[in-house]
Amino acid sequence: MKLPAAQTVDLRREPVDAILERVEQSLQVRIDRDTVVYKRRSVGGRTDRGTWVRIERRGLDRIGIQGGDGTPSAEALHGIAKPAWYAGVSWLDENERVMWRADETDLLPGRPVGGAIVAKAPELSEEWWAALNVSLDALAAQRTNRIATPDTETITQELVTETTQRLFPDVDTTITQWVPAHADLNWANMTAPEFCIFDWEDWGMAPRGLDAATLWGASLAVPSLADRVRQERRDDVESRDGKLMTLFVAAKILGPYAHPEDPRLDPARAVADQVAKELQAD
């Protein structure tokens, strides 16, 4: 039987009790309903054995050859502050082309720093920034057959070119260096005061500087924070591929779906225009 294509669904507005019960039965845990966090395409909660279960809904067209196993495959990475993975279960939805995936991990060592995009600067210690750099450097030094899927879309040379040249048509977008990246590095996926990166569903090989550019984009409403991100990751953002990733992220912010009142628009445009000039001058 051919299933219909996946529909756009927001799990913050859809009933998920049956999904939670299925996961509980499969993983032999009990999820505390008072702790459940609802996001657009995922839900998660604390279990009765002191762990955390995250459940994601993803259309099959957004999985590709990787199979949706980002969290368990990230267990092989070393030198990175992240929760340990223990068990997982996945299944095909009975009614549409959607895969559900649940993973049980350690509890986070702290609270998420903020939302995906922050409106005020978080209070972060120098030790926190140092730990961020240690983890991102360790990640980039490793190798994988996985390809990163930022915004659930497999990143390719073609995607970089198409996205970037919509706004910066005169820039040569040829990528020369691919390294492992988290691919969804924002303030909702890191903890403080103790540093930790979580939600590894989209990690894989990506152009150098993707993580730095993504975090910069999530920080643009607070210019001093965006500047700090670029300062901390300057080796990445000042590389040629890092500059291209800055334009790639900026093009998404400034693109056709940009909200006119988005506070990130002006700072994104200012940095991107300067970076584009630098690339064209090389």
Rank of each mutant, 00 (worst) to 15 (best):
A6M: 05
Q7A: 10
Q7C: 06
T8K: 00
V16M: 01
E21W: 13
V23K: 14
S26D: 12
S26W: 08
D32C: 11
D32H: 13
V37E: 01
G50F: 05
W52A: 01
R54A: 06
I55C: 08
E56W: 02
I65N: 05
Q66M: 12
G67W: 01
G68K: 09
P72A: 00
A76R: 06
A76M: 01
H78M: 10
K82G: 00
G110E: 01
R111W: 06
A119R: 11
K120A: 10
K120Y: 04
P122V: 02
E123R: 10
E126R: 14
A130L: 04
N133M: 03
S135V: 05
S135C: 04
D137H: 05
A141M: 11
A141R: 13
T144E: 00
R146Y: 02
D151V: 09
D151N: 13
E153A: 10
I155K: 07
T156S: 11
Q157T: 09
F168I: 14
F168K: 15
P169I: 15
D170V: 01
T174G: 00
Q177C: 09
Q177N: 07
A181V: 07
L185A: 13
N186H: 05
N189W: 02
T191P: 05
P193M: 10
I197W: 06
I197S: 07
W203K: 11
R208P: 02
G209F: 04
W216Q: 03
W216R: 04
G217D: 09
S219W: 14
A221I: 03
S224N: 06
A226K: 10
K243I: 08
M245I: 10
L254Y: 15
G255C: 07
A258S: 02
P260Q: 07
P263V: 05
R264Q: 13
D266E: 05
A272T: 08
A272S: 11
E278G: 01
L279R: 04
